[in-house]
């Protein structure tokens, strides 16, 4: 009998050590966070804050996992009962609790060693359970189905809208499509080089003596005459420009070599 008992005790000891370690880490995290909030609150940013909360919540969940782990003996099977209460100050206890509990006396023991809820809470629970037991099973069933219905409806709504949000955000991420690179190119080349804006217009320079009809212009004229034919709209109007320029050209007082 001796051996297994000591093994169990050993297990209890190690798991308690683990638990203590975790709780200590958690406590450290909380206290550093509080310190930061109290003394360095100007510099704390929202993401920073969230980070702290994240660390704390992950600490809590690891502690919880540890309690549920298989190696952990069922702690509720162990009973702690006070043998001696004393109103005197206990320096050892004070040191262990870091100054929070000064003495193991009648005042603090009920609070620290409580295993049941407070009497008022118990009363309330009692009241509720009486009320619950007073309902007939049929009514209870009805209420249950109604509640289930409402819950599933709400769940549907939430799922639907979350799908929509996902779709929305996906669409936003995938296709920004507020501009088209092709159009950018078209517009910029139009504005800087005149592409698509330049009209085939051989007559504008034809009668312009100041420059003298150069070879290049003649070449241009020949090139531009061809595409002009299928476009009667454009072809009809340059004639006005032609006469304008002719008038301007004849009145030109300077002669060029």
């Amino acid at each position: 009998m001796q051996a297994p008992q000591s093994k169990e005790e050993k297990q209890l000891e190690t798991s308690l050590d683990d638990l203590l370690q975790r709780v200590r880490e958690l406590k450290q995290g909380i206290s550093s966070f509080i310190y930061k909030l109290e003394n360095d609150y100007q510099n704390i940013s929202w993401p920073n804050m969230m980070e702290h909360f994240g660390v704390l919540s992950s600490g809590l969940s690891t502690t919880k996992r540890l309690l549920k782990a298989e190696k952990m003996p069922l702690l509720r099977n162990y009973v702690l009962f006070p043998i001696l209460l004393s109103p005197d100050r206990d320096p050892h206890l004070e040191k262990l609790t870091e100054g929070r509990v000064l003495a193991f006396n009648h005042e603090v023991v009920p609070d620290y060693l409580r295993t049941k809820p407070e009497p008022e809470v118990e009363e309330k629970v009692q009241l509720l359970s009486v009320k619950a037991s007073s309902i007939t099973p049929e009514v209870a069933q009805k209420q249950l189905t109604a509640l289930n219905k409402i819950t599933s409806n709400i769940l549907d709504i939430i799922n639907a809208s979350s799908d929509e949000w996902d779709k929305d955000s996906n669409q936003k991420n995938v296709v920004p499509s507020t501009s088209s690179p092709q159009d950018t190119l078209t517009l910029i080349s139009a504005i800087t080089k005149g592409s698509k804006l330049r009209r085939p217009d051989p007559t504008s320079m034809q009668q312009c003596p100041p420059m003298g009809p150069t070879q290049q212009q003649q070449m241009q004229q020949q090139q531009q005459l061809q595409p002009q034919k299928p476009m009667p709209v454009v072809g009809r109007v340059p004639s006005t420009i032609k006469t304008n320029i002719k008038a301007a050209a004849t009145s030109h007082p300077y002669q060029r070599p």
Binding site: S179, S180, D183, T186, L187, I188, A190, I191, K196, L197
Partner: peptide
């Protein structure tokens, strides 16, 4: 006549 479906 607009040159494209975009604004520069």
């Amino acid at each position: 006549e607009p040159l494209s479906m975009s604004h520069l």
